[in-house]
Simulated assay, not measured.
Amino acid sequence: MDFLQIIILALIQGITEFLPISSSGHLVLPAQLLDWQDQGNAFDVAVHVGTLLAVCIYFWSDIKALWLGWTASLIKKQPSHEATLSWCIIWATLPALLFGGVLSLLGWDEKLRSTLVIATTTIVFGLLLWQSELKGKKTRELTEMTIYLALLIGFAQALALIPGTSRSGITITIALFLGFNRSAAARFSFLLSIPVILAAGTLKILQLVAAAEPVAWDVLIYGAVIAGVSAFLCIHWFLGFINRIGLLPFVIYRLLLGIVLFCLYFAVEF
């Protein structure tokens, strides 16, 4: 990988990981347009570590409060909003882990990574995001999150294992349908990403170790740093942006991206 390829792929991962526009949909484009080879598992691990560090640093005070609340609920049986939210995140993570394990065992995770699938899901779930923006009441705060509501969002998150869905997009969509305001929906989506990205990154590391591939450490470090910095800035920008502008720009962008991907697919196939 040359340095330009490292920068472009790391920026794509860092920016699109937390925006409701599908990172997988964008990672297809460089290979299609520039005829690049697959970047490999090692680079995927590096950029996932970068985005994980970014969200952990940005929400460090929240993570600390959630951890203290959760441990207090276990040891002292002391209820709190932080303890409830921690349990909500834990329960909401389970569907994605179970569904991801099933896909991996059946070998469907790679089969679904096609331009046609990604183009279709990019458009379909983009339209669903638009409906949630129009019909969601946007009155609930994050303090009103319950295990039941979190599980519904968690099952939606499991759908994001289908490439093109967008993990942040589908979780924000369902949270809006459930009545949460944009800020609460986005904040819960970002917090919910931490265990999922950690699990995905750990799985990729195990696959990398098992494959015993040669490692270019300079490439991995550059990728992790670029992805992490861009992800951190993206989170900060997005949380402010959705309260002022809403989600319609992302819906329009997804529809345009889906059309481009369909055009690329048919150009290659026919």
Results as ranks from 00 to 15, higher is better:
25 G>Y: 04
26 H>A: 15
28 V>H: 15
29 L>C: 15
29 L>M: 13
30 P>N: 13
30 P>E: 13
30 P>A: 13
31 A>D: 15
32 Q>L: 13
33 L>N: 06
35 D>E: 15
36 W>M: 15
37 Q>R: 14
38 D>V: 08
38 D>N: 06
40 G>K: 10
41 N>L: 15
43 F>N: 11
45 V>R: 14
46 A>M: 04
48 H>E: 03
49 V>P: 08
51 T>V: 01
51 T>K: 03
52 L>T: 00
53 L>M: 07
54 A>E: 01
56 C>I: 03
59 F>P: 00
60 W>D: 06
62 D>A: 07
63 I>C: 11
64 K>D: 12
64 K>A: 14
65 A>W: 03
66 L>M: 06
66 L>W: 02
67 W>R: 05
67 W>K: 13
67 W>Q: 12
68 L>F: 06
68 L>W: 11
70 W>T: 05
71 T>C: 05
72 A>Q: 04
74 L>V: 00
75 I>W: 02
78 Q>T: 02
78 Q>F: 00
78 Q>W: 00
80 S>M: 02
80 S>C: 02
81 H>T: 12
84 T>Q: 09
84 T>L: 15
85 L>G: 09
86 S>A: 11
86 S>T: 03
87 W>T: 08
87 W>P: 11
87 W>E: 10
88 C>T: 04
89 I>S: 14
90 I>D: 14
91 W>A: 14
91 W>H: 09
93 T>E: 11
93 T>P: 10
93 T>I: 13
94 L>M: 04
95 P>I: 01
95 P>T: 01
96 A>C: 12
97 L>G: 01
98 L>K: 09
98 L>W: 07
102 V>L: 14
103 L>Y: 00
103 L>E: 14
105 L>F: 10
107 G>E: 02
107 G>W: 10
107 G>M: 08
107 G>I: 02
108 W>N: 06
108 W>D: 10
109 D>V: 09
110 E>M: 07
111 K>V: 08
112 L>A: 06
112 L>N: 06
113 R>V: 05
113 R>D: 14
115 T>I: 10
115 T>H: 05
117 V>M: 12
117 V>T: 07
118 I>E: 13
119 A>I: 04
120 T>C: 08
121 T>N: 11
121 T>I: 08
121 T>A: 15
122 T>A: 13
125 F>T: 00
126 G>F: 00
128 L>W: 01
128 L>T: 04
128 L>E: 05
128 L>Q: 03
129 L>H: 00
129 L>N: 00
130 W>D: 04
130 W>K: 00
130 W>C: 04
133 E>Y: 00
133 E>A: 00
135 K>I: 13
137 K>W: 08
139 T>C: 10
140 R>D: 09
140 R>F: 12
142 L>E: 09
142 L>M: 09
144 E>F: 05
145 M>V: 08
145 M>Y: 01
147 I>Y: 07
147 I>W: 04
147 I>K: 03
147 I>F: 10
148 Y>E: 15
149 L>C: 13
150 A>W: 02
150 A>N: 01
151 L>F: 03
152 L>V: 08
152 L>C: 02
152 L>Y: 04
153 I>F: 05
154 G>A: 04
155 F>G: 13
155 F>D: 10
155 F>T: 12
156 A>D: 05
157 Q>K: 02
157 Q>H: 07
158 A>K: 04
159 L>P: 03
